[in-house]
Write a protein that binds this DNA or RNA. Structure first.
Lengths: 244, 244
DNA sequence: TGTAGGACGATTGTAGGACAATATCAGAGG
DNA sequence: CCTCTGATATTGTCCTACAATCGTCCTACA
């Protein structure tokens, strides 16, 4: 903590942002909460803030130079998204997913994503199909990936898939399945060959979708995620941070 | 959670306006927000507050006799649950589900609930099975239902199902699918025969689960929800409050 | 008369300080 | 060594004030 400072003054009518460092000052009126949420989300998903850490309101007000109101609202929002745990009178902790939770999320995700794959394959929206094709172009490229590239591609793939599927609520709900969080917490198992295999599976799914093979797309997706689940759970089962 | 009463006055510095009517005073410290959320949720789900109504912070502070802080937090929470729409600088509206949204929710729900049915049927947890059997007993009874009874039974059925399925995250996620909200907004189509059919379907699903027939339970559930979706969407498509 | 622009009111967004309630932790006492 | 009690840290809530924004209405001008 203690990196406060950042904001010596931002008051009244004067300009309120001296982006100085670390944290750019929150943008104009009405976006403060969103800004804080975004910053914290970043920090959590990149594990800049470790799972299990406490998020103390006082520290955050100092860090962002805002009052407790927006901070509290931001925390509620993160809690609603499932990124933090909020215990009454005890504050917020960065969520740490147990093996059980990861397993449950994958179980759900299998269904949601294979539904999305089916819907995407069945879509008749030519524009959306074109966008999808464009969005997955990077995935079709061969060659090895670095981890950040892969994470980015992966997110883009799922995003494009959801867009083509055309079910907005499904997209929103899928966000709550914490794929990025899981990724961050099991990043250690993402070895180059695992990445390669995953990319190839994505490619196969994409092809099936473009061929309008709903059945194939759905089952490829199912297989893909079941494999991913097995991977994500294997090392944890053999004893690291699955205590509690 | 002892309810209400308990607190006629709680400030040492002086009584705070004694709202005393309509709403019982919020319970002890730390539960104010939860109390407000619960009240409003009730009001929304029973359509005491019509979909599309504005929820003005000032009105709510007056109604509940609390300050804007808890009210705002309660609104955020309802927004996170999807019960209200929150537009920046413009306040909150009670959410009105469009036909499209209802359709999308059902599409998702089909997958989630049939997954749950499958998991429930496959469960080996004897205690949980016993609890399930007990919970669905009312559903096995014959005879016609009144609407409120049905709604209650229905909620209990889905709850018991989720409990037996044993995937907590699935349970949480299913809550976000707004079944009660949908029910409330299409209550007009729940005629006695529709209710009867629905109860019979529930019964069939329950039997399949108790017989450990995963395949059957899942497909019965799928059929059940697809039928429900068709029903929920039929009258709206033909023009009532689907405008805007 | 019709429209553009500005004044005004209503409401939300945020600040900041105050206090009560609760959890946590450490030290005193058995 | 264990238990109880106090100090401390943190959250939950209230309050007041003000800035920013949205909507509306009203007026001025073409």
């Amino acid at each position: 903590m203690s990196n406060a400072a950042a904001e010596s003054e931002r008051t009244s009518t004067g300009e309120r942002d001296a982006p100085s460092r670390g944290e750019a000052a929150p943008p104009a009126h009405g976006a403060t909460v969103a800004f804080i949420v975004e910053q914290l989300r970043e920090d959590i998903l990149t594990v800049r803030i470790a799972p299990g850490s406490r998020l103390v309101e006082g520290d955050l007000t100092a860090r962002f130079g805002v009052s407790r109101g927006p901070v509290r609202e931001a925390l509620r929002r993160l809690a609603a998204d499932g990124l933090i745990d909020h215990r009454p009178n005890r504050g917020a902790l960065v969520r740490r997913l147990s093996a059980r939770e990861i397993s449950e999320f994958f179980q759900i995700r299998v269904e949601m994503e294979s539904l999305a794959a089916r819907l995407a394959a069945e879509s008749d929206d030519v524009d959306a199909r074109a966008l999808f094709a464009a969005a997955i172009r990077p995935i079709l490229a061969d060659g090895p990936r670095r981890l950040p590239d892969y994470l980015c591609e992966n997110a883009a793939f799922h995003e494009a898939l959801m867009a083509l599927a055309g079910n907005r609520e499904l997209r929103d709900l899928a966000m709550r399945l914490h794929l990025p969080l899981i990724m961050a917490q099991v990043a250690d198992i993402l070895t180059p060959d695992v990445l390669g295999a995953s990319v190839r599976e994505h490619r196969a799914i994409a092809v099936a979708i473009l061929k309008r093979d709903a059945q194939g797309a759905a089952s490829l997706m199912r297989a893909h995620l079941e494999r991913a689940a097995a991977l994500a759970l294997k090392p944890r089962a053999a004893g690291e941070n699955s205590m509690e």
